[in-house]
Design a protein around this nucleic acid. Sequence first.
DNA 1: GAGTGGTCTAGACCACAAT
DNA 2: TTGTGGTCTAGACCACTCC
Lengths: 239, 239
Amino acid sequence: MDEQIAQDSTPIFQRIKDFLLGEIASGRWKEGDLVPSEQALVRQFGVSRMTVNRAVRELTAEQVLTRRQGSGTYVAPQKYQATLVEIRNIADEVHARGHVHASRPRLLEQSPAGEALARQFDLAPGTTLFHSLIVHDENGQPIQVEDRWVNPECAPAYLDQDFARITPNEHLMEAAPLQGATYSIEALPAPRDVAEMLDVAPGTSCLVLKRRTTSNGRVASVVTMWHPGHLYKFTGSVG
Amino acid sequence: MDEQIAQDSTPIFQRIKDFLLGEIASGRWKEGDLVPSEQALVRQFGVSRMTVNRAVRELTAEQVLTRRQGSGTYVAPQKYQATLVEIRNIADEVHARGHVHASRPRLLEQSPAGEALARQFDLAPGTTLFHSLIVHDENGQPIQVEDRWVNPECAPAYLDQDFARITPNEHLMEAAPLQGATYSIEALPAPRDVAEMLDVAPGTSCLVLKRRTTSNGRVASVVTMWHPGHLYKFTGSVG
DNA sequence: GAGTGGTCTAGACCACAAT
DNA sequence: TTGTGGTCTAGACCACTCC
């Protein structure tokens, strides 16, 4: 058993993963099929069970396989395509394109939460919130209106930031460790004030990302980001 | 060492993960900080190194920690929020809302690929492709126009399907095991023909998802899905 | 009861980094 | 040279499923 298969240095558990993935990719094993047991793989590869276990466990974590104790290991059902949209700091995103980013704060205030906003923050109506409204430019052209409300308990120094220099995103990442988020992406016509800030005609199609983030069990921030539909898109890849 | 800590049945490796996550969540360990070595954790928890290793390895796979061989384990840099949009079969999605889904095929043909399309498929211009145009209704109201081009080599029986009964998505998942995808999400005004099919005014804001999927190393399908902006959004959560 | 996965041990050898 | 992570072994006990 000592005879490390050597030759190439790919770890054994990885080779077992590759073997299993290959059987599935080739279509020899189809979804729902029973996969050889750990014991069988131990014999097949002449390795210890822990090594086989790691390979199979990792593929299970990656949702390639499913396991049922006492029963066996199966090829996982085909998953629907998951589209991963990485929400990055707008400034970094623009820089990554080799372009110039600028922030133009238009409003920075504290304001009592209205009915709907209070509900989103899970706070009593009338609670004081921070509010910022910032236009982000790429090469001098507006590409995002960021309308953000912030829970003062999560980021007490929010209003003291220089949002021409750093983005709210950056400050919040520092101040309030991100726990989770819910979001929606929709297409809406630009209302008059947003249209003016984006330098487009009112009613222009906009790509709107709304996001509500939580930190330490509290709702930290509720933000609506408006992007002109003809200038901005979310892109990505999977697989 | 036998004295299984018993009490509760949480696996030891999970408790170690919880401990490490707790130190980070509480802010006691900050990003970039050095995390105790495996040896140190072995002593701290009085368990074997393999157990500690599993905890730390899994947190590394989950991007909570980073490791450098010979150096140590560190708290990973804060990641940007990743927004996961699960692209599901439109029929399942509608059913999940307890609503009625209907497909209305409007066009089903084979057609030579134009310049731009050929480039997307990585095929020679003029190559024959399959083309379908389907309107999807939710409770009788149009919510998606699906304009799809398919590589005949990946799904030779595509045109023989009854797309009033099954969705192209379903057939393709069968015929061509999904390998990967690139996509974009944007907001565009509805052109006249799409507007007519969606039963909205031309120029209405639409949420447009374009996706290009590959199977067995070939581009299998290029699809553009139009949704009325006021009726459809992508939603989800992370964390 | 036989077979499966879930977990854990107490060692081991290696590659690599810091010193 | 010392300490780190990366991997692997050859056992073990347990909970669960299936027959």
